[in-house]
Design a protein around this nucleic acid. Structure first.
Length: 626
RNA sequence: GGUCCCGUAGCUCAGUUGGAUCAGAGCGUCGCGCUUCGAACGCGAAGGCCGCAGGUUCGAGCCCUGCCGGGACUACCA
């Protein structure tokens, strides 16, 4: 009897067929029982639906010609419940074994995918606690394009892991501490005291200006003075600059006083800082809402929340000899793990650095949040920093889980968003572009595209759809590119409705939903999607659609493993494409007979569910019509 | 100097564990298809030294070495 149970365990044919070939290899070549069966979907339909490539690699190990090995595998493998009978003709070329799924098996696999779970959820014993570090806004600074990636990719990875059934803790590591923040706070206090700023009505733009002003006041002039001396500028210019530098030094002293007050929890100073935080976070959460990113106030875990942990942490490192003094600074040496640059945890002047904060954050996440895995969704340019911090934490034992074992630390770094000139995206004047402006612009353009095409929608619905479309456009563009690569930001290409875009996916889904509306209006019932659903894919387009659907669980697994959402994007683009061909070639409501209509309606229903589920995992909102 | 990433069609990019007719998609260009479920679609054509040169092997866009070209990072900013 053929083994059938695994057919009910997963709807993913690759997993089942891989298992069957693995069993076959174990039985035909017991001494190589562990060999990888090398099963994959065939790239060319000519060669069947799936293939096993193990014969070639095994032939060397067993010392037999590959075709002979293939023959032995073919006669040992049990696939008769799934595939057309294998035989001599199934072995092709140097020893490829081609597998053609039986139509009824394809139908059963589709039924298996028709459950709510879709074979996506891990077993109860495999549930992990996973911290996802995302968004990473900075106090008193406007969000810019760079934040799109951390927010969108981080949110998507969190959604994927949640869909797998893991316990996910999002952490927005807000840059809300340190001298730069003290500088702004100091400046805001000065402006308020001079009657030039009202804290009650202050906006993020005001804070952004204050931040830039403070930064310029504190360090630019000093560099200017050095340059002036170097280039032998006239005494008058020098005198002017020196005056500015004196001002800068005064400003710097004030900032340090404020920093000290903040560190000592001075109520009046903290109140001002809190106001800066509130204004910043309100804007941040609004941007996240427009990006459909699940980032809430309770996800905020700013640098300030680790402030009091830094001194004890550094003491601990020093006492245990993990860190040592070098040139007056306290550092952890990492040459032994292949990193030449040591990580500095305390500067010569006694101040701590962002590496110190990150180590405190990891320790907290491992010990208090009980993370089994921490995923950092942060710019790839910080890879050295994270390599250092991770290595430092491992060395210090901060990555050791309370329950034993070590927490998996991943830096899911992403590339830079570039402008048309190939350099990091900026305005002509060198300013970074406000994220809020960009999102509004995307919405306006989506609205324009929409009004060109559909006129019968009322204004309110049109706005809702335009918002979803703009979000789909931005998120899909960002997610579909390989994570680590830079890409050129092009709003026109993103909000285009044709081709490999977010809106195309929404369109495919809207067309399916339109079929259901039409069916309802004709009094036709859509058969229920459950494990007993009777699929009968017959036409090539139906079969292609079925195979595209069955790739979904594997694609989600891939993203969990690699933290690369573009794999799922590619899969659902193929799915939407397969549906479009099916839609073109296979009439659903006007199918030639009742059985075919039911089967096709089921295919539509399953496509709707898979596409909808995938878009949900990608954080892309869907619409009923557009 | 050191470490790492990237070079694939005119443009923007996929290519999974090395697998076959594997040279792929989208955009753009040129054709074709709506009296039948949404043409925001589908089908077809044109377009290529997969940066270059070696190597590994049954098999290389993928792995190794060197070179050329572009980029990022590189001890007291975050």
């Amino acid at each position: 009897m053929p083994a059938r149970p695994d057919l009910s365990e997963t709807p993913d044919p690759v997993l089942i067929i891989r298992q069957r070939f693995s069993d076959a290899i174990a039985s035909a070549f017991p001494e190589h029982a562990g060999a990888d069966p090398l099963v994959a979907a065939s790239k060319n339909p000519k060669f069947g639906d799936f293939q096993c490539n193990a014969a070639m690699s095994l032939s060397k190990l067993v010392g037999k010609p590959p075709r002979e090995v293939a023959k032995a595998i073919v006669s040992a493998v049990r696939l008769d419940d799934l595939a057309e009978p294998l035989g001599e003709a199934s072995i092709a070329g140097p020893g490829f074994i081609n597998v053609m799924l039986r139509t009824d098996a394809l139908g059963r696999l589709l039924s298996g995918l028709s459950t709510k779970d879709m074979g996506l959820t891990v077993a109860p014993g495999e549930v992990r606690t996973i911290v996802v570090d995302l968004c990473g806004v900075n106090l008193a600074k406007q969000m810019h394009v760079g934040h799109i990636r951390s927010t969108v990719i981080g949110d998507t990875l969190a959604r994927v892991l949640e869909r797998r059934g893991h316990r996910v803790i999002r952490q927005n590591h807000v840059g809300d501490w340190g001298l730069p923040i003290a500088m702004v706070t100091s400046r805001v206090i000065a402006l308020r005291d001079a009657g030039k700023m009202n804290l009650d009505t202050i906006t993020l733009d005001d804070l952004d200006r204050a931040y830039k002003g403070a930064k310029i006041a504190c360090d630019a002039d000093r560099r200017g003075l050095e340059a002036a001396r170097k280039w032998h500028m006239g005494p008058k210019a020098l005198a002017e600059l020196e005056e500015q530098v004196a001002g800068a030094e005064e400003e710097d002293r004030a900032a340090r006083r404020v920093l000290s007050l903040l560190q000592n929890h001075d109520a009046a100073t903290v109140a001002v800082w809190q106001r800066l935080s509130d204004v910043t976070m309100a804007a941040c959460l609004e941007a996240c809402r427009m990006l459909n990113a699940d980032v809430r106030p309770e996800h905020s875990a700013g640098e300030s929340s680790y402030a009091d942990a830094l001194a004890p942490l550094v003491d601990d490192l020093e006492k245990r000899g993990i860190a040592e003094v070098s040139d007056g600074a306290l550092v952890i040496r990492l040459e032994d793990v292949g990193i030449r640059e040591p990580v500095i945890v305390r500067k010569r002047d006694g101040a701590f650095l962002y590496a110190t904060t990150d180590m405190a954050a990891i320790r907290h996440r491992v010990r208090n949040l009980r993370a089994d895995r921490v995923v950092y969704c942060v710019d790839a340019r910080q890879s050295l920093h994270f390599a250092q911090v991770f290595a430092g934490c491992v060395k210090a034992g901060y990555a050791d889980r309370p329950g034993g074992g070590r927490t998996q630390l991943d830096h899911a770094g992403f590339g830079t968003i570039l402008g048309e000139d190939g350099k990091p995206f900026k305005t002509r004047t060198g300013e970074s572009v406000k994220l809020a402006d960009l999102l509004n612009e995307a919405f306006e353009r989506a609205m324009g595209e929409l009004t060109k095409r559909s006129s019968e929608l009322d204004a309110a619905e049109q706005a809702t759809i335009a918002r979803a479309t703009a979000t789909a456009a931005i998120r899909y563009t960002d997610l579909a590119i390989e994570r680590t690569k830079d890409y050129v930001f092009n709003l026109d290409a993103m909000v285009k409705f044709e081709g490999d875009t977010g809106p195309y996916l929404l369109y495919a889904l809207a067309r399916i939903r339109s079929i259901f509306r039409k069916a309802a209006s004709q009094g036709l019932s859509v058969p229920t999607l459950d494990a007993g659903a009777a699929f009968a894919p017959a036409a090539p387009a139906e079969k292609a659609l079925a195979l595209a659907l069955l790739r979904y669980p594997g694609a989600v697994l891939d993203v969990e493993r690699t933290l690369e959402p573009h794999r799922l994007c590619g899969m659902i683009y193929d799915l939407a494409n397969a549906f479009s061909v099916f839609f073109d070639q296979c009439p659903v409501l006007a199918a030639p007979d009742e059985a075919m209509r039911r089967s096709r309606l089921l295919l539509c229903a399953l496509t709707e569910r898979v596409l909808g589920d995938a878009l949900g995992v990608l954080g892309i909102p869907t619409v009923e019509r557009m």
